[in-house]
């Protein structure tokens, strides 16, 4: 088997999501080639060459691929694809845009956001927003796959020594043009998009004490949330409210501090991957949902957490 893996990058550095896709590719087995398509992206190719498990890197360095336009990228990938059994990429806004286009050009189906590799042609993927898991088998000679990165460990970024080959190719459809980009540059991620959320409840006692939460959030790159009780008490504004009548969040890590765990609050965060509860009342219902519970005084726990992270 020959796997072609499409690198995720910003022309200057390899996005670590690629490493998760490498793990998935390794599980499928066979020779692994990484395609780095971009502009002025030699660095990325060099980085990709060092990733453990990669045997070859193809570098398509051309202005047509600078902005990751799906029309151009998909034409390139479909052309490079000859001889590969799998074309795989970490699920990202770029690959989700491009890969189905590749699949259609090759007249094959696509397996979106797989979470497990069962064999070279059988995979598991979530359907119904993760409320069911489907096991699916590809009937096509070429399997086009995107990988849900949270489901795979990252491959080692160092340890490989693959050679880099250049692909001299320029596919510019000319029908799509990049106009501009606004990337959110905030120290604190947006609540519903954050991968870590730390929320405070009535237990915080005052608006000033939310600073304790912010210090920990800074260390974790976390967004700040709040329970309705904290909003009602006027500690924070209601756009931070997590729960049935507030925001629904599902981060990788949710830390509930001084929140007792009313049903309305749980409805807004129970889909989080890992839930931590910190509360001094060991009877608080939040502990029934938490993966890790710490019974303790938040005024002692939060500074300690901040210091040790």
């Amino acid at each position: 088997m020959n796997i072609l893996l499409i690198a995720e990058h910003d022309n200057s550095a390899l996005n670590p999501a690629t490493l998760s896709a490498v793990s998935a590719a390794t599980q499928i087995g066979g020779e692994l080639t990484v395609l780095v398509a971009g502009a002025d992206c030699q660095n990325v190719a060099d980085e990709a060459a060092k990733v453990s498990g990669v045997s070859k890197v193809l570098l398509a360095d051309n202005a047509a691929y600078a902005k990751g336009l799906a029309e151009n990228l998909s034409a390139l990938i479909a052309e490079v694809a000859t001889g590969y059994s799998h074309i795989i990429a970490a699920a990202s806004s770029t690959s989700k845009d491009t890969m189905p286009r590749v699949a259609a050009l090759l007249d094959v189906g696509q397996l979106s956001e797989i979470i497990a590799v069962e064999s070279a042609d059988i995979f598991k993927r979530p359907i119904y927003a993760g409320n069911a898991i489907a096991t699916v088998q590809s009937q096509d000679a070429v399997k086009v796959i995107t990988v849900r990165t949270s489901a795979f460990d990252k491959a080692a970024a160092e340890g490989g020594c693959a050679g880099v080959e250049t692909v001299a190719n320029s596919r510019d459809s000319g029908t799509s043009n990049f106009v501009n980009e606004e990337l959110v540059k905030s120290d604190r991620p947006e609540l519903t998009a954050a991968s870590v959320v730390i929320s405070g409840g009535r237990g915080l006692g005052s608006a000033e004490n939310f600073a304790l939460l912010e210090n920990v959030a800074d260390k974790l790159g976390a967004a700040i949330g709040a329970s309705r009780a904290a909003v009602d008490a006027g500690f924070v504004s209601n756009d931070l409210q997590v729960g049935q009548t507030g925001k629904i969040v599902a981060p990788e890590l949710y830390i509930a501090v001084g929140i007792s765990g009313a049903i309305q609050h749980l409805a807004g965060m129970k889909e989080s991957k890992v839930i931590v509860a910190i509360n001094k009342d060991e009877e608080a219902p939040i502990f029934q949902l938490a993966d890790y519970g710490l019974v303790g005084d938040l005024f002692k726990v939060l500074p300690e957490l901040e210091a040790k992270l």
């Binding site: 189906g109 890590l253 890790y292 726990v301 300690e304």
Partner: peptide, 30 residues
Amino acid sequence: QHITQLKVETPAQREAGIKVDSVDALIDKL
């Protein structure tokens, strides 16, 4: 037909959580 659905399952249920006794233990687990 390009893709065959072999099986549909309910996702693994959240396992019962545990209590940790210190901040160190919490950080270690996370």
